[in-house]
Amino acid sequence: MAFLNALPGAIAEGLIWGLMAIGVYISYKILDIADLTVDGSICTGACVCAVLINAGVPAWGSILIAFLAGAAAGVITGLLHAALGIPSILAGILTQLMLYSVNLAILGGRSLATLTPGTSKLLHMSNNPLAILAAGLIIIAVIIILWLFFYTEVGLTLKSTGDNPDMSRAQGINVKLNKVLGLAISNGIVALSGSLLAQYKGSANINDGRGAIVIGLAAIFIGLSVSMKIKPNLVVSLVGVIGGGIVYYVIYNFVVLLGLKTDYLKMFSAIIVAVFLAAPYLKSMYFTKKKPVRAQTASARTDEGGDGNA
């Protein structure tokens, strides 16, 4: 019974984190970059939104500005990587660290900003059905915009940039610029979800978003394990990712209700993601051992085709 009572809240929170996972999907799946900026940019989104709403800016305006703030963070990571040649994973970590200071500055040096009661909010945990509706509508809008975007000339080149950078350059695509653009969109969406999170919880905390990348990846793996079996296209994948976010939070709430100490939840998230990341590797190891003859011929073939690049 307690679980059923907690369900609407879990779904609302799952939707918000699912939106964040869509941002991670763009960097991780489309651009093929594990972007750790998101741990910082989701918090930036939350902080910007909280401060603006308290200053009297309408909620919709606040989430748009939060989106832009996140996009700016993505641009920084993109430039560190593409223009300065820093490996993408380190570029993300550097920006994430910078954002910790930036977020503290946004919050005026405090670690917590509580939304003043009575200010305009799109969603709040006190009314879960409405929160689900509001988050759902925003997610639908984001998915439609992304769906249209990824079929434009620019969108197609963004896909090919992550899929095959050599081919992309040979076809006249500015791969570096595309990475910056993709990271901006990705972190913009992540910050947008952060702004929804701040409204939902009624506060923004400097520690919000720690481990967000892990939750995002968990939602992606859970979602894609189902959606890839249905139809491997963008919209189905994105809906799957949202579903993954919801499943994650329902499980999360269930585990909390079972009495697991919340201190251990990050461990729990990391283990889920580690299992999903390790699965393909372990699977290949298992098959190699089982069919050594086939594996040998395959490697012999690679040796043959591999030389001669004089």
Partner: peptide, 14 residues
């Protein structure tokens, strides 16, 4: 993508 090699890519149907 190849048909637009050398062109400026726009936000129009790809």
């Amino acid at each position: 993508i190849a048909a637009r090699r050398g062109d400026k890519r726009k936000l129009v149907w790809g």
